[in-house]
Computed example of a mutant assay.
Amino acid sequence: MFERYLAKWRVTPAEKPRGMNVTHVTVTKILDFYIARRIDRECIDVKRPRSARPYIEMFFKGTPLNRIRLQACAAYIDARRAGQVRPARGRRSTFIGSDGSIRRELLILRTAARYALKHESICGSDMPLIEAPPEPPSRTVYLTKAEYKLAHETAEGELKDFIALAYYTGARRRAIENLTAGQVDFDGGHIHLQPDNASAKQRRSKKRKPITPIVRPLLPVLTRLTAGRLPNDRLLPKKDYYSPFNRHLKRLGLSAKGFPHILRHTRATHLLQAGASIYDVAKLLGDTTATVERVYGHHSSESLGKKLDEFEEG
């Protein structure tokens, strides 16, 4: 009688996993499930998971998920480093993967498997054993004050406005490209980087869009760009500013620094070099203090030299 009473509380494993009616879950099926159910519905940054997928599928093809073990991961890492994994749709001149890219690809596969397990679409016996390369050191490239001045003064038209907006706000490229006149509050002296009509998906993003102050050098730029515009009108022409910025810095001999996100690095670095606190910089960027200290808290050799000279003279 007592055993019969306890029987209804016993948890028994399901005979078949729900969600995927297959005997062996392959890498392709697990990525299809993860991208359709998680990435496309809830994530803002869909480019990285989608760009990682062709390399994973090309190498593992129809391999069952539970057959991916440490040896298979090591083979994938070696093949990617040697440029031997070449997706059919790839347009790149080189397919050699950096450790950062390889790590991201393998972690996306592991995350996809964990997501499917969480939603009971696969069983525990289907889980892979994945080992990725260690996390590479943070990229600490930034423009010196002279380089930023050169890049800004030699730019023309909307590219010059983009550089000024991205630098003084410390915002990411997409936030500047989508900035509207209604997000600029002259009375309060702030720019609301998160628009009022942001979707729930955008508000759940880990890439926070804070309220940033309007500094004096930015005031004439914003006054000119907002003149005669409706609240929903963009301040800049609708286009991707990555390539124009990249070409501009190449012409200046700064091809290694030709990515717009460097303006965010540069703003944080210049503020820290000028004596701003990590807390204030973190508030401006919408990051944690730990992230600012780890990623942006680097100083130029000139600043370090001055401090050492002051130390020796004291």
Rank of each mutant, 00 (worst) to 15 (best):
P217L: 15
L193D: 02
R208P: 01
D185Q: 11
P210E: 15
Q194A: 12
K206D: 04
V215S: 01
K206Q: 06
K206W: 00
G182D: 06
Q202D: 13
R203I: 08
S205L: 12
H192F: 13
R208H: 09
V184D: 04
G189I: 08
D187K: 15
A198Y: 00
R208D: 00
D187S: 14
I191F: 05
I214H: 01
A181H: 11
D187W: 13
K207I: 01
F186C: 08
R203Q: 14
Q202W: 04
H192I: 00
K209Y: 03
D187N: 14
I191Y: 03
R204K: 11
V184N: 09
P213F: 15
K206H: 13
A198G: 04
K201C: 06
V184A: 06
S199W: 10
N197H: 12
D185F: 12
P217I: 03
G189N: 04
T180W: 02
P210G: 05
I211K: 02
V184W: 10
A181Y: 07
G188K: 09
D187A: 15
A200L: 12
Q183E: 15
A200C: 00
H192W: 08
I211Q: 07
I214L: 03
V215C: 07
H192S: 04
L193R: 01
K206N: 06
H190G: 00
Q194I: 00
N197P: 07
R204M: 12
T212K: 01
R203M: 11
S199E: 13
P195G: 06
I191K: 01
A198H: 02
R203V: 06
T212A: 10
F186K: 07
A181K: 08
K209L: 13
V184E: 01
Q194T: 06
G182C: 09
P195N: 08
R204A: 12
P217W: 11
Q194G: 02
P213R: 08
R204Q: 12
R216A: 14
G182M: 09
P210W: 13
L193H: 02
G182W: 04
F186E: 08
P210N: 10
A181D: 01
D196H: 03
D185M: 13
S199I: 00
T180A: 07
T212R: 02
S205K: 12
P195K: 03
R203Y: 07
P210R: 05
G182P: 08
T212D: 09
V184C: 10
Q183Y: 09
G189V: 02
R203W: 08
K207G: 03
R208V: 11
H192V: 00
R203L: 14
N197R: 09
I214R: 06
